[in-house]
Design a protein around this nucleic acid. Structure first.
Length: 577
DNA sequence: GCCGTTTTCGGCCCGACTGTTTTCAGTCG
């Protein structure tokens, strides 16, 4: 029973308690615990063994007991009893926007509705609008949400959302007098998936800005339009909201709309203890009812005695305590990255030549790149055999004599075969500057086998980096079964770096893994896995993940200057051997 | 159900919108 299973059980419990009409505080207590569990960088089973379950924010005596019961028996008596109190299918009605606990219960008990299909039928038959306090408009509204749930994509990868947001912002800046335009919400916090695009800005003439926004070419439908706010649907079916606020309130509002919800709740609870009431309009002193407004977030946090908290850390975990101590680390920034350690050329399945990749990388201000084409086992990707790899290495040597301002390192992305052996012999690997190893096949192996497979690769003294360790593809493929804690400990022990793969559909390792790996002293490496020059800038997505994992420049290989990096790579090989 | 620079008991974030109301319940972010 892993963390997400347990979180799901608690989510069901929270929903059921809502249906039951339990006190909101009890429900919130569950929700707080759920958020914490979802963001936990270690397994609950491990915390239990260490006796640290109660250290998890929101886990007290009762929830701890329930976690232990779930871990040891795989079941939870309280949950089963609670479920038996309600007709089957009621919980599913809560997924529909506009349907809360009260409505769900009435639909279920008065009309016998047990599923979303039955709900749709009942609305069409006109049975729903007959219920007390449920009119025609409400029924219509529910039907609309019900149908759009089917067609609308749930959350989309940040790799799709951010470029789209930037496109919107660029055209809005051109066509309207908006100032301070910036993303808010999960986009600004750099979550790996985004529900909708939230944008904010200031302007003297808010209405003119809103007007321009709703007329942008990529707007497909205008959902709502007011004097200071509008919601539109863009051509990809993604919703975008714009808020135009007064300059003097910009800090308060940006803070509020950046979230996360849990962060804001924690912040307000803290404010309350200081006799302050926090809202999107500012900070009110409870004694005299005086409202202070803030044009910057720094001012807002400062008023609470906190240092500025980078948006990527605002998840309601420990960031507020750290800001109180003024001990928030200086997080990794794009400018810290001095090179790319994972990319492909037209020697394997890349599109561009090594030289073209090198020139593009130089344009980004890099000092070096490592060419890490696939090994022979990946036939479909034109993997290199020993002979071609030797030829490539000598071409790189020649290239380096003629190239200025950038150094090309020789390397490979060697396949880790199903049996754990590597696809190229050690003597070949020994001649390369950088060796990345990765799993590309037999992805359904069980946890024990897969873990041993990766551990074996890490023990090889020539392997420097493990690429995309969990193999997940966002929204398409689950991560492979892997004992992450064992992987992290082995990586720390052997000095093998783990990659944060920058491909927007991978982002692998993910934020909570980065957090834990770093905690255990694992070195991390940023790799774009670029198959063309245009992919090199994807590094920003991994920088975002790194920041969410509280990563600092010192945790990453790519922040070293080239000579230091080469020395590290050589020294590490010797130490392992 | 959690939790403590007021508290081991008594609090618990804050505001807005919508529809169905005649003063507000329900839902959302």
């Amino acid at each position: 029973m892993n963390n997400s299973h347990i979180a799901r059980v608690f989510q069901d419990i929270a929903d059921l308690l809502e249906l039951k009409g339990e006190t909101p505080f009890k429900i919130r207590a569950y929700q707080k615990a759920i958020r914490s569990i979802e963001q936990l960088p270690v397994g609950l089973d491990q915390l239990r063994q260490e006796g640290k379950l109660r250290d998890v924010p929101g886990v007290g005596e009762a929830i701890e007991k329930k976690i232990v019961e779930l871990l040891t028996t795989g079941r939870l008596k309280y949950y089963e009893e609670l479920r038996s109190e309600f007709p089957p299918g009621v919980i599913s009605l809560l997924q529909v926007p506009g349907i809360g606990p009260k409505t769900a219960m009435r639909l279920s008990t008065e009309l016998g509705i047990r599923s979303l299909e039955e709900l749709e039928g009942a609305i069409i038959d006109g049975r729903v609008e007959g219920l007390y306090r449920l009119g025609e408009k409400t029924a219509e509204n529910i039907l609309h949400h019900l149908r759009s749930m089917r067609t609308k994509e749930q959350r989309i990868p940040i790799g799709t959302a951010l470029p789209l947001a930037e496109e919107i912002m660029a055209s809005l800046r051109q066509t309207s007098p908006i100032r301070n335009l910036t993303p808010a919400g999960s986009l600004r916090r750099f979550r790996e998936t985004i529900g909708d695009i939230d944008l904010m800005g200031t302007a003297d003439d808010g209405e003119a800005v809103i007007e321009s926004f709703t007329r942008l070419p990529l707007v497909k439908e205008v959902l709502a339009r007011g004097g200071t706010k509008a919601s539109v649907v863009t051509h990809r079916g993604l919703q975008a909201d714009l808020r135009v606020v007064e300059h003097d309130d910009f800090g308060s509002l940006l803070q509020y709309f950046t979230g996360s919800k849990q962060h804001n709740i924690a912040l307000r609870e803290r404010g309350q203890r200081q006799g302050l009431k926090l809202s999107e309009y500012g900070i009110t002193t409870l004694d005299d009812g005086r409202l202070e407004r803030f044009s910057t977030e720094e001012g807002f946090y400062g008023r609470l005695g906190l240092e500025f908290i980078p948006p990527e850390l605002r998840e309601g975990q420990h960031e507020i305590e750290r800001a109180e101590e003024h001990s928030i680390p200086r997080l990794l920034e794009p400018a810290d990255v001095k090179g790319d350690l994972h990319l492909h050329s037209d020697w394997s399945d890349g599109r561009d030549s090594i030289e073209a990749m090198a020139v593009a990388a130089r344009g980004l201000g890099y000092e070096y790149i490592a060419v890490t084409d696939h090994s022979r086992g990946l036939g479909i990707a034109h993997g290199l055999n020993e002979e071609r790899l030797r030829a490539q290495t000598s071409e790189i040597r020649k290239l380096n004599e003629n190239l200025h301002g950038i150094r090309v390192l020789s390397g490979t992305e060697v396949d880790i075969r199903a049996d754990g052996s590597l696809d190229l012999p050690d003597e070949i690997l020994a001649n390369l500057d950088v060796v990345i190893a990765a799993v590309h096949s037999a992805l359904s192996q069980d946890e024990d086998r897969m873990t041993r497979r990766l551990l074996g690769a890490m023990e090889n003294p020539h392997v420097d980096i493990i690429a995309h360790p969990t193999g997940r593809l966002l929204g398409q493929r689950e991560p492979v079964a892997l004992g992450m804690e064992a992987i992290f400990r082995a990586a720390a022990r052997t000095g093998t770096a783990l990659e944060i793969n920058c491909m927007p559909d991978r982002l692998d390792l993910r934020d909570i893994h980065i957090f834990r790996a770093r905690e255990l002293g694992v070195r991390l490496a940023l790799g774009t896995d670029a198959h063309g020059t245009e992919h090199l800038s994807n590094v920003r997505f991994a920088v975002g993940m790194a920041r969410r994992g509280w990563g600092e420049a010192r945790h990453f290989l790519n922040t070293m200057p080239v000579e230091e990096l080469l020395a590290w790579l050589r020294g590490r090989g010797e130490a392992k051997a």
